[in-house]
Each structure stands twice: as C-alpha cells, then as structure tokens.
C-alpha cells in the first residue's frame, strides 16, 4: 500500500499505524509520545510568551531549497523569532488528500523533523485528517508555536523614528521565484534556490549585540515592498529604500526579468528586516554577517520624515518612485 487512503484519517487502525510508523518515529519526544489530547508542559520562569499559527498550502510541495514540511517549521519559528521570542514548542496538523504517495508524505514528515531538530524546537502535539481526492491539493500543513520573549525593549512600530535604518540579512525574492520555477506548466528549468530557513539564531545573535532593535518582520507573502508598506501605513514617517543596496541573486534577477515580476513583491522565507537606530545599524549588519544566514546582510533603507505613510524607492538609475502594497495576485506576467 503506497497511497494514503481515506481510512488513514478515520481514527481507526490505519490512522494509528500512520501515526506510529511515520510520524512518531520521526518526531519522537516524551511529550508527544503520550499521545494525549493536549500536550502538557511546563515553562520555567516564562515571563512573556509569544504564540503564533500559520497554514502552509504551497504548490508545488517540493521546490529547490525546501519543501512544504521544512517551510511549515521555518515559517512558524520565524514568526516567533521576529517577535523577539525564543521558539520552544510547535504543533503540527496535517490535512492530506486521499491518494497522496506515502513516500512523499514520509519525505515531508522527515523534512519537518529534521528542520525542527536543527532549530531546536519540539513538535509536541498534532492531528492528521484525510479528505477525498480533489478536496485538498496533496497536503496542507498547519503549525502553531510557542516561545518565550526575553528581549527587554518592546518590538513595536511605535518606537520607529525618522533617521532609523533598515537592515536585511540577505538576498530577496529567492523563495517565490524558486516555487514559480518549480511549476512545470511554466516550462522553465530553474537555478533558483529557496531561502527557506529558521532565523531565530541569527536574530538572537543580533539581539545580543544590539539593545535597541525597534522592529522586526519577515517579508514573506507580498515581499519586501508589502512588508515595508505594512510598517509605514498610517504612521507619521515614510520609508525610503535604495534599490541598488537591496541584495539580489543574479539568477533570481534573471528569472524575475523573464517572468516580468518585480523582486520587491516576491515572497521570502528566510529573511528578516530590522529597523534600528543609525548608530546600531552597522553593528546589526556585522552581527548578521557573522552568521551563516546573514553573509550578505546590508543596510537597505532609512526611515524618513517626509512621505509619511508611504514607501519610496530610489531606483537603480537614480529615479524615485512610490512602491505600493501588492494589489494583485502575482501572476507571471508574460503580457
């Protein structure tokens, strides 16, 4: 039997076999092994907690540089990390389409387990459902996560002021382009690797060196331009980005040109944008560069007193333009 059947989600023997042989084997930890209705655990001297949830529906489920399993761990770890938290525990809910290859499921579970281990988080509770063919696309994953916030200063847009600098830990648009190129119907052979990665260690490295980080966010869906707009919108300051300083892989740039897409609007899964005072910005870049995931870190922009609420891009030819929120589904624009 190499396919997932509806019975695998019925709660009967097949469900138990699946959980025992595929999932527990890979996520094994004492809290999960109880298989109780809820995970029960202690947080010593917890103080402030961060709690987040996210669902993953990427198509295709495997792309260069990652897959939906790795993504579902990194995404939740990163949401906790940009809130200033140290991620500890995550949950994992699988919604599987009937007929999914068991080998593919096993690969995805494997990849979740590996990423969780590498990131030092435990998967301590979960659920598995199987739906009829056509009612889901291969597999959807929901993960929730809990972490402890140890950073003293609040991470809040309220603290951002004109003159602050904007720092990123590396190249943009790699994830979105990697996924697009993996879609067979577009007919491209890719060379673009997703940046999908857990960022909490890199972020902690910076937080240790910089006591005044004002805000952090991971520019996922909608890309860097959309994230910057979320920050500036309705605020008494504007944001100016310098296009030539924004790191971009040559292969990603080429693919963007080919597909008629603007890399500023393409999603990332291993990037964090930080806003901090000018005098800490250099230190933040240096701290990032000391970490494997931040070698190409740079200051890419600044907070301005003009253009309140807006994001301005100084283009690579020296012109200025406004970068708005992403307003449409980013279809490959051949037109």
């Amino acid at each position: 039997m190499s396919k997932i059947l509806l019975a695998h989600g019925s709660g009967g023997k097949l469900t138990h076999d699946l959980i025992k042989n595929v999932i527990l084997k890979k996520y094994g930890n004492t809290i999960l092994r109880n298989l109780s209705d809820a995970a029960v655990f202690e947080l010593k001297k917890a103080g402030r907690l961060a709690f987040t949830t996210d669902s993953f529906v990427v198509d295709p489920v495997i792309f260069e540089g990652g897959d939906i399993g790795k993504l579902s761990v990194c995404g939740t770890v990163n949401d906790l990390a940009v809130s200033g938290a140290v991620p500890l525990y995550i949950s994992c809910s699988l919604i599987i389409e009937e007929g999914l290859d068991k080998a593919l499921l096993s690969r995805i579970i494997d990849s979740m387990a590996k990423e969780a281990k590498a990131a030092g988080v435990l998967i301590i509770t979960g659920d598995t459902k199987v739906v009829e063919r056509g009612n889901a696309d291969k597999i959807f994953i929901n993960t929730s996560g809990i972490g402890i916030v140890r950073y003293k200063k609040p991470i809040s847009t309220d603290r951002i002021k004109a003159g602050d600098k904007i720092v990123i830990n590396g190249t943009i648009a790699d994830h979105g382009i990697s996924v697009l190129l993996a879609r067979e119907e577009l007919g491209f052979k890719g060379g673009v690797k997703s940046d999908c990665a857990s960022l909490h260690r890199l972020i902690l490295t910076v937080l240790k060196k910089c006591s005044n980080v004002k805000f952090m966010r991971d520019p996922t869906r909608g890309g860097l331009a959309t994230t910057m707009n979320e920050i500036a919108s309705g605020m008494p300051f504007g944001i100016r980005l310098f296009e030539e300083n924004i790191p971009l892989n040559e292969s990603t740039k080429a693919a963007c040109e080919l597909l008629g897409l603007d890399p500023l609007y393409i999603g990332n899964e291993g990037k964090v944008v930080m806003i901090l005072p000018e005098k800490e910005a250099g230190r933040a870049v240096a701290a990032m560069r000391s970490h494997r995931l931040g070698r190409r870190a740079r200051i890419i922009g600044e907070v301005t007193s003009d253009y309140a609420g807006r994001v301005i891009v100084r283009t690579r030819v020296g012109g200025e333009r406004i970068a708005d929120m992403l307003s449409k589904e980013a279809l490959p624009r051949i037109c």
Partner: peptide, 24 residues
C-alpha cells in the same frame, strides 16, 4: 518609465503619455 522612476529624471516640461499599447 514608472518602475525606474524616470519621471523624476526628466525636466517638468517633458511629458510622456501612455497610448493604446496594452493588448489586454
């Protein structure tokens, strides 16, 4: 013209206007 912010690189008395060249 818009993506590279060329408007800010031209003097104010030089204007570019868009024509009917979008087939969709």
């Amino acid at each position: 013209f818009f993506r590279f912010g060329l408007k800010s690189l031209l003097p104010e008395n030089v204007r570019l206007i868009s024509g009917p060249g979008c087939p969709v």
